[in-house]
């Protein structure tokens, strides 16, 4: 350092004139649109009965008290029976979806299926996903009759959409090494899938199945309101006939069983696979946000 001039002194700076405040129309527009939409919706909803809102907290508190102080313990067997049926519906539905979604997943994966085929399959899966289980149940009931079978079919069909999509994404994320190795041995396309791809993705896909099972338990708990089996009909009957102590017992059973099965299932998922979406999506009520 021989000169007295400090290094970096030649770094030029722009002379600063104060800039004009930019108008942020986007933010204003968004805020305005939300506010307008909100009040338009409230104002134009007929028979909203906002007056009912005044007494609602007190009423809810009363109902809460009637439900759980104490719940009708003698109703436990009935509630439990319904909940077990819901679990069975969820399980069978998941199995149906698992069996159907695995081939669909391969068909929808861009690195396995030709572009047109995978795009079409993907759209079909999206379409299936957008019909709620309960609506599917309404369709199946007149066909296979009232009861748990309609529920299992509804859950099964709906879950094909999500499981197919998640499986396809898992397949797209594979390591191509083993695929090439299998291809190099002269294996058929089916052989490559079976020995090159499937072993890599199966743990992750099975984790998705379990995750979906957890989601489906919640769905199966309410299907009963349209007559598709499970604890839903018990819930509906006790609540609409205001048998609050029995309703409380049933809600308790639903929550406790759901939480217990969730805990077991997510523990298995975590052992099955670490670090993937299937394992980290630890809470089935907040499905993976795309």
């Amino acid at each position: 350092m021989t000169t007295t001039k400090a290094p970096g002194a030649d770094v030029r700076r722009q002379p600063g004139a104060r800039p004009r405040k930019p108008r942020r129309y986007g933010a204003w527009l968004l805020n305005g649109a939300i506010i307008v939409a909100f009040f338009w919706a409230i104002g134009s909803l007929e028979d909203l009965g906002l007056a009912d809102l005044i007494g609602a907290p007190a009423k809810m508190w009363d109902i809460f008290g009637l439900m759980f102080s104490p719940p009708d313990w003698s109703y436990f067997p009935t509630a439990m029976e319904g909940m077990v049926e819901s679990l069975q519906i969820a399980w069978i539905g998941t199995m149906i979806a698992a069996a159907a979604s695995l081939p669909m997943g391969f068909l929808a994966a861009k690195n396995v299926t030709a572009r047109v085929g995978s795009t079409v399959t993907r759209q079909v899966l999206n379409a299936i996903r957008s019909v709620p289980e309960l609506i599917l149940a309404i369709v199946f009931i007149p066909i296979v009759g009232l009861g748990a079978v309609a529920g299992a079919l509804a859950i099964g069909v709906h879950s094909i959409g999500t499981l197919g999509k998640l499986s396809a994404e898992a397949i797209e994320g594979i390591d191509t090494g083993p695929v090439e190795a299998a291809r190099a041995t002269g294996a058929s396309q089916a052989g490559v899938m079976r020995w090159g791809v499937l072993p890599q993705v199966l743990p992750e896909i099975v984790a998705f199945w379990l995750y979906r099972f957890e989601v489906n338990i919640r769905a199966a708990a309410i299907l009963g309101i349209v007559g598709a089996g499970g604890v839903g009909s018990v819930l509906q009957n006790t609540i609409s006939f205001r048998r609050w102590d029995k309703a409380g017992m049933t809600i308790l059973v639903v929550i406790v069983v759901t939480v217990l099965v969730d805990a077991t299932s997510s523990a298995i998922r975590r052992r099955l696979i670490r670090g993937s979406t299937a394992a980290t999506a630890s809470d089935p009520t907040t499905e993976v946000v795309a």
């Binding site: 700076r13 722009q14 002379p15 600063g16 004139a17 104060r18 800039p19 405040k21 930019p22």
Partner: peptide
């Protein structure tokens, strides 16, 4: 705040 930005000669980036 504007004066502070002027002191470090970066007021043109305020927004």
């Amino acid at each position: 705040a504007m004066q502070a930005l002027e002191r470090v000669e970066i007021v043109d980036k305020a927004y």
